[in-house]
């Protein structure tokens, strides 16, 4: 291995972690408020939801699929959980279950579209992305949901309960609940993908579906399960977002598509994995969160955010698809 090869390998393995560290040092030195415990918690709380949704993206990427509908799932679940509580006065736990079921169901629809109807994944989830973004608007006639909103001409009976809000705002031993969930789900997804039989089967389908089938893997079933997992994780993000906001903002989930896809793709490059992986995805989400938060503190106006995120996504795509960092295959 030549010096150049070795250097390239090192850059590929650790470059992203070094870059993240450099960003943190830079922001902390130029803006003292960045390095405070309070701000770290703010960043992590924002990152947690992105990370959890991005774990779902990681699973769909593992089977070689792509789920464009996750942002819409987040939006739809925000509305489902808040409407259930405010309009129908349902208890928090029922609202949570309804939200998770909605996400799983959309994932199932995506999976069936891809596997049974044989619609290419990008197009199938592009379709469901619009359908469920639209569905999120229908029950409230495009209005946001909060306690005291009008429903059928009368004040809505329910409100968003404190148990529900705890999911987004509470903490256990000083650690915010979403951050705790991020850690737990991050470990679960990482172990599932890297160290379990189902994870190996997911990777087999993503690597070579025909070879997987001839080796006895039920490719269709595995793909459907991946989309269901992706939808369910997006709905966990939706529940947490609704609980953090304390209201049902329409289209609250739309920024998550670009952020989570960027996070998962950045994750390809963490520690030279070169494939979707749980740990990398969380590092990717932290990367996105630190960048957005740091730039906001540098007084970069909010309307720059989409541009920055888009550029970040393009960078992540280059990182994971271009041959620059691939090993010499000859």
């Amino acid at each position: 291995m030549t010096v150049a090869d070795r250097a390239r390998d090192l850059v590929y393995r650790y470059g992203l972690l070094v870059l993240l560290l450099a960003l943190i040092v830079f922001f902390a030195s130029t803006e003292p408020a960045f390095g405070t415990v309070r701000n770290v918690l703010v960043v992590l709380q924002a990152v947690a939801i992105t990370a959890i949704v991005a774990l779902g993206v990681t699973i769909s990427l593992t089977v070689g699929g792509f789920d464009l509908s996750i942002g819409s799932i987040v939006s739809f679940v925000v509305m489902v959980t808040t409407v259930a509580q405010v309009y129908f006065g349902l208890p928090a736990w029922v609202a949570v279950l309804l939200g998770l079921a909605a996400g799983a169901l959309i994932g199932l629809i995506n999976g069936l579209l891809v596997v049974l109807a044989r619609v290419p994944d990008l197009l199938a989830t592009l379709g469901t992305m619009f359908v469920f973004a639209g569905f999120a608007l229908v029950p409230t006639a495009g209005q946001s949901v909060a306690a005291g909103a009008t429903f059928n001409g009368e004040p809505a009976p329910g409100r968003i309960g404190p148990d529900f809000l705890w999911l987004g705002r509470g903490s256990v031993l000083g650690v915010p609940v979403p951050v705790l969930l991020m850690i737990v789900l991050g470990v679960v997804v990482s172990v599932l993908l890297a160290r379990s039989r189902p994870g190996r089967l997911l990777a087999a389908v993503g690597s070579n579906p025909e070879a997987a089938r001839l080796s006895g893997v039920h490719v269709g079933r595995v793909k459907v399960l991946a989309y269901v997992a992706s939808g369910t994780l997006a709905s966990v993000g939706g529940v947490l977002l609704a609980a953090r906001l304390g209201r049902g903002d329409v289209s609250a989930g739309s920024p998550y598509l670009v952020e989570t896809v960027a996070a998962a793709l950045i994750g390809f490059a963490v520690l030279g994995a070169n494939r979707p992986n749980g740990f990398g995805t969380i590092v990717g989400a932290v990367f996105v969160g630190v960048l957005i938060n740091g730039l906001t503190m540098q007084n970069v106006p909010y309307y720059w955010q989409d541009l920055i995120k888009g550029a970040l996504l393009v960078g992540a795509l280059i990182l994971s698809f271009s041959a620059i960092f691939r090993k010499d295959r000859t």
Binding site: R200, A203, A204, S207, N208, E210, A211, L214, S215, N274, R275
Partner: peptide, 12 residues
């Protein structure tokens, strides 16, 4: 196309 997972190692 029908049997190999080229990016996997031999054991996998």
């Amino acid at each position: 196309s029908g049997a190999e997972f080229p990016d996997w190692d031999l054991a996998q």
